[in-house]
Computed example of a mutant assay.
Amino acid sequence: MKEIIIEGLSKKIKGTLILDNVNMQMEPGKVYGLRGKNGCGKTMIMRALCGLLIPDSGKVIIDGEVLHRDIKFPRSVGVLIENPSFLPQYTGYENLRMLSKLMGNISDEEVRNAIERVGLDPDDGRTYRKYSLGMKQKLGIANAIMGEPDLIILDEPINALDEQTVMSIKTELLKLRDEGKLIVIACHDREELEFLCDIIYEIKNGTVAGCEVIGE
């Protein structure tokens, strides 16, 4: 992946403007933060980035290909948006293994590796319904990074995680960034974003209200 360009993105839902002329540019090897209050449009921008929201106007361009014109979804993407849905009667490993088979290009070893990277045990025999909130959140992150996609989109990834786990997740995300991945994170916590991100976009009322380069 070389770059993502969001150009003039606007969207109305039931007559309400939820995205208003959003413009952004992103490149691999960086972590981008979306910061703003609940309902400001952060999640909708993420849904647009991964092809789950079709804009009324404007476009998302990934390496020269326009979403919903040239491609339906990014060619290599991992996503954690809102509450991840897994089958409650299967273990975490079984859930991710089934998803990996649907994707068709992720080995069992890569599934195990993703689970271990977030601090879970792929051999844990507990079913998903017996997972704590923190474990469910970790599995959602593991699903997003499984197979090390070029684009990783995470909505409030550290919710329900204890401090030690937050630090290990941060370490993994920074490793992925240094491996050349493009990572987009939505979070309302300024300190967390400043620790993780290279660039933070301030989102207000469905549009970009500002852009801050961290460390400058």
Rank of each mutant, 00 (worst) to 15 (best):
Y201Q: 01
K14P: 00
P149T: 08
K170G: 07
E202W: 07
C211K: 12
E202F: 05
M1D: 00
T127G: 05
G78H: 06
G41D: 03
D20L: 02
Y128G: 05
K175Q: 09
M135P: 03
V166A: 10
P55W: 10
E172V: 13
A48I: 02
I153M: 04
G64W: 01
L173V: 12
P74E: 02
K72Y: 07
G215S: 06
K181A: 13
P149C: 07
N38L: 04
L154C: 11
I54T: 01
D56N: 09
I45P: 01
E148I: 07
P55G: 08
N143T: 04
D56R: 10
I62W: 04
G210Q: 06
R112L: 03
E192H: 09
G104A: 15
I54Y: 11
F195P: 00
G210N: 01
T165H: 04
C211Y: 00
D189K: 13
T43W: 02
Q164L: 14
E163K: 13
R177K: 15
I6A: 01
V66F: 00
I4K: 02
C50V: 13
I200P: 00
A186G: 11
G64D: 04
L174E: 11
V184G: 04
L133W: 04
G92Y: 05
F195N: 12
R112W: 07
G104T: 15
K170C: 08
E191L: 08
